[in-house]
Design a protein around this nucleic acid. Structure first.
Lengths: 227, 227
DNA sequence: CGCGAGGATTGATCGCCGTCAATGCCGCCG
DNA sequence: CGGCGGCATTGACGGCGATCAATCCTCGCG
């Protein structure tokens, strides 16, 4: 573990900077320390689709492949714990326990991605938005707890702009905005500033998802395992 | 490898039989030998969503987890090469090379699933159908080759009923049918019988996907690695 | 302070697609 | 052979959401 620390180093990226480009030589892997990273894919029409969002403790990069099929881009200012991919791979070969952990992580990721795919393809726009907000409320609850803040009030912080969220949810900024305003009118959430809301009615939010709480929590993503 | 052969055994399932139920004790894993397996998830409303389709050589089951988050169900009559999950896991621990192969497979699966998710969430129904048919044409081309048949004519065989295909693509049987008939009228495909078509105009099919051939082929799924 | 740019919101319109319903088709079983 | 049940197809209709367009807000800058 200490050796892993020696090999890795902290790097900072400004919002908008591309960390690994699609088709690139993916020379580094690592995990997010602070900020949010967009996982994107360029379509032939030139507009970028959002494949996923990576939060602190999430792993990024693609081990054991010479070129990444996606781009990794800083959605906010981020700091990343980076390791040279080759070094990471040879490290894994020498420490099978760590490789085992990586395998478990990837298996969980695969399950979560399949759940997400099933959800997005079978639900209305409002349901997808409600699920997304629910996940964000859980994510931010976790990070605010370690911040020491009394989280009596649950805050939903939108990590990226409306355009990116809409692309992630397979809709448009207009429809996204309309549905958010509907939730505001119903007193499910309350706007704090442009990019954050207070969750007033958690049960009401779940109602709009047409999912059970159990299924929702299955989509939360994986627990931090590596480092 | 021989040891893996000793541990595994062939099992047959009739169409419609459930191999592993969602939430179950996933006691077996293995891979598909013949037929097609549906990977499904029950929604709260009670109808099943299709998360994925598994073809011959595909791996099924969930290693290193006590309960599967999805159901595995025989979409056709299938024969499976099954291994007790515990035995498989301990086998992996004794043969790290095989575990490494599994890791690579799962990483590729994750990429393919993300590509698929991005595709389904950002495209029209016709585009999704065209992509699905394109993938099927490649899949069946492969299996027909090993059959020894001269594949001058490309045959697209629908592995499951319209209802399941529609669920997989996030649409309805009616809309699916309409779009298929549109492709027939445009002489892109030609019906052979209820469940198979001949691909007349491959380029025309790609046009309807609004994707590049490269991206399409990235979604084909993973090469067989285990056994 | 005024200005301009980018993003978010709101409004108006239209088309795709989901829903309901009817018809056609095929295989199964009495 | 005739009836029946499941599946695929076709038709009619309505609503959700994408598109285009206008307005508002915020922020950065001269």
């Amino acid at each position: 573990m200490q050796e892993l620390g020696r090999l890795s180093h902290l790097r900072e990226f400004r919002k908008g900077q591309v960390i690994v480009a699609q088709g690139d030589d993916a020379t580094i892997v690592g995990n997010v320390v602070t900020g949010v990273v967009k996982l994107t894919k360029m379509s032939v029409s030139g507009q970028q689709q959002i494949v996923g969002l990576l939060f602190p403790s999430d792993f990024f990069g693609r081990a054991f492949s010479d070129n990444s099929r996606f781009s990794y881009e800083a959605a906010t200012d981020v700091s990343l714990c980076c390791i040279d991919r080759q070094a990471f791979e040879s490290f894994l070969l020498r420490f099978p326990e760590v490789k085992h952990e990586l395998l478990l992580t990837v298996l969980d990721e695969l399950d979560a991605t399949r759940e997400w795919a099933a959800m997005t393809s079978a639900h209305t726009t409002m349901e997808r938005i409600a699920v997304f907000l629910f996940i964000l409320s859980k994510r931010s609850a976790g990070s605010y707890c370690e911040n020491g803040t009394k989280s009596e009030r649950t805050v939903i912080a939108l990590p990226v702009g409306r355009r990116d969220i809409a692309a992630y949810l397979g809709t448009t900024p207009e429809t996204l905005s309309r549905n958010i305003q509907t939730l505001v009118r119903k007193h499910v959430i309350r706007p704090l500033d442009a990019n954050s809301f207070e969750l007033l009615d958690s049960a009401g939010l779940v109602d709009h998802t047409s999912e059970s709480r159990d299924d929702l929590e299955a989509m939360l993503g994986v627990a931090p395992r590596i480092r």
